[in-house]
């Protein structure tokens, strides 16, 4: 009797790229849910623009590169890029900016380098950074979370829809009533105007720790991240290193000068910290690969984010920190090669 031949091994685990990407999308659900509840339906509009635009750009780029689009469109990585961008940008962003960000992410962040697996930078953060430096006003307009203003959910829905279709100018007289500084913004402005930390933290943007919007979004991202850890989609090295890289210097500086430096808890639950630590910095393609390298890589992201927040020109620094450490990843890979069995310790 004759049989088919094939190289060993003859069995493999069930993991595949599409399944990994699907799990990442599942992990993002809590973040979407919290944004939806506290900041209105804007996040859904962002997802509805970013997803299709990213898919379209992926298909066009694959076609232009003469590749079979099928398996790559189905692998889900482009949807993860789109989703990360959509939950990172303010929910009030007009649709053309979201579309631009998604197109930049997929075309300039991914396909100019050779597509899946070859991009040196995190595509979503390339898109985000281009939007942030080009449209700083639109990119820092966050709706005031429910409970911190007079608005209710229908007001936020109306606002999101208007702004989505026609930009912030169309927000009209309600605009200032419904949008406000985030806690990171307020901290930066307050410190610039020489207010003390107590005075700043007594301000309207600071419900409990870091403002009810940011802190619950961060808690949601932490939950989603723990899910990814539990499903072994990501390893602990990068998230733990990011959080430690941010918590240790901020706690030290708060201890030294509590009047000028916010506590570590504030930084951990502000801006894009948890989203960045668990979902963005953990993108394996653009991160360092060895466990040691990943610890250094993550710590660098946490530290640089904190530095930008405290001394930089932007209220949050996660996107820039990720891009900077992406640049360092090849070097980290070179210097953190693990010891091979039977070789002397280096």
């Amino acid at each position: 009797m004759r049989f088919e031949t094939s190289a060993a091994p003859h069995v493999i685990a069930g993991f595949s790229v599409p399944r990994v990407m699907f799990q990442v999308l599942l992990g993002l659900l809590p973040v979407v849910a919290v944004q939806l509840t506290l900041l209105g339906p804007g996040v859904l509009l962002q997802l509805l623009v970013a997803g299709p635009v990213a898919l379209l750009c992926e298909a066009l780029a694959l076609r232009a590169r003469g590749r079979d689009a099928g398996p790559f469109l189905r692998d889900g990585s482009v949807l993860v890029t789109a989703a990360l961008l959509a939950v990172s940008v303010p929910p009030l962003l007009p649709w053309w900016l979201t579309a631009l960000g998604a197109a930049v992410a997929v075309l300039l962040g991914k396909h100019v380098y050779g597509g899946l697996g070859y991009n040196p930078f995190n595509p979503a953060m390339v898109g985000y950074a281009v939007l942030l430096v080009s449209f700083p006003l639109e990119m820092t307009q966050w709706p005031t979370p429910l409970g911190q203003s007079q608005s209710d959910w229908t007001d936020l829905a109306h606002l999101a829809w208007q702004s989505f279709l026609s930009g912030p100018a169309a927000g009209g007289p309600d605009w200032d009533a419904y949008t406000g500084a985030t806690a990171l913004d307020a901290l930066r402005t307050g410190l610039g105007q020489r207010y003390t930390m107590e005075e700043i933290f007594a301000g309207p943007a600071f419900a409990s720790i870091s403002g009810s919007g940011a802190q619950w979004i961060n808690v949601a991202a932490l939950l989603g991240g723990l899910y990814l850890l539990a499903r072994r989609i990501i390893s602990w090295h990068i998230p733990v290193a990011v959080l430690a890289g941010m918590a240790i210097p901020s706690a030290l500086m708060h201890l030294v000068d509590p009047g000028a430096h916010a506590p570590a808890t504030f930084h951990l639950l502000s801006g894009a910290t948890m989203l960045g630590a668990f979902f963005i910095a953990t993108d394996p393609v653009s991160a360092a690969t060895s466990d040691h390298g990943r610890l250094v890589y993550g710590a660098g992201i946490g530290l640089i984010t904190w530095l930008i927040r405290v001394w930089g020109g932007y209220p949050d620094g996660m996107a820039f920190a990720v891009l900077l450490m992406n640049l360092a990843a090849p070097l980290l890979d070179r210097y953190t090669v693990s010891r091979i069995h039977g070789h002397p310790r280096r």
Partner: peptide
């Protein structure tokens, strides 16, 4: 076969 996404599972 898909491109390597450098996930590092193999090294682990």
């Amino acid at each position: 076969e898909m491109p390597c996404i450098r996930c590092g599972d193999c090294a682990r």
